[in-house]
Amino acid sequence: MASRTGGVIHDIGYRPYEGRRLSEGSIAWSLFRRGYLEAFGIGRSARAKILPMTMAVLMLIPALVIVSVIVLVSLAEGFLNYSTYINIFSVGIVIFVAGQAPVLFTRDLRSGAISLYLARPLPTWAFALIRCASLAAAIFTISALPLLLMFIGAVSNEADFTDQASDFFPAVLSVLILSVILASVTGLISALTTRRGFAVGAILISLWVSSAFVTAVQAIADFNRMDGLSQFVGLLSPFSLADGIQSGLLGGTASFLGSPEGIGMILLYVVSSIVLVLGSLLLLIRSYRRKAK
């Protein structure tokens, strides 16, 4: 032992640490980074990497094909719009989110590790927000990477940079908005249960059902020329909400039929998104505070 002298050679004894300790900001960054990596299964078992890595690769394949075609045929423009890419391949994002949101939220509750985090310097609200940020960043990565690939492919193939950029950047912004909405909503759903299966099911159902409902009602409304109804219904799914903001506010191509028109409706889309995100985050923080007690 440290206080004894002589005798023991191999036991180097306990070494106290009186050195530098990092600020809450550094701790937060460390938690964010680890959460982000864990969303892709990095730092976890080999099995945990299968789903997120597969989804990330599957999301990239169509973009790779598009870029290859552009390069081979020497097209001046991509034949797939940046703004609509995400909604066409939204199934990949839904599966990724349904699989990985429980990893960042349900898993801490199920294993009980949440009590170790809450007994450390980061406040409860910060922990909840950082977990959400990790998930949002992971969703953003797998959604924006294909767009970036297509953009680089198009630009390097002599497409007009300004033309491409004016489509690309609004699409990326829209992906960011979608990532934040999805992370906060699915984070909340995952933090309400300790059963991973329940969380996965609830996320799949809520995202697919809401998306299908919006698409169906908008198709019927469009057929009957009920534009108002079509635009209001678009508020009910994260995908149509983000799509509405990017098409109405950022001038991108709409994937859903009821793209908001007029400043009032566009504002309603923006405010609804903010309320949805803030409301989910508040409920998430409240749920974590209860866990501390």
Partner: peptide
């Protein structure tokens, strides 16, 4: 804590490093 608090799909060394960092260790 009294109850279980270890994620089963993480190696002990990785978890203890992470928890050290969560307490502010470089």
């Amino acid at each position: 804590p009294e109850h279980d608090c270890l994620p089963p799909d993480v190696r002990a060394i990785d978890f203890i490093v992470h928890m050290g960092r969560m307490s502010g260790l470089p």
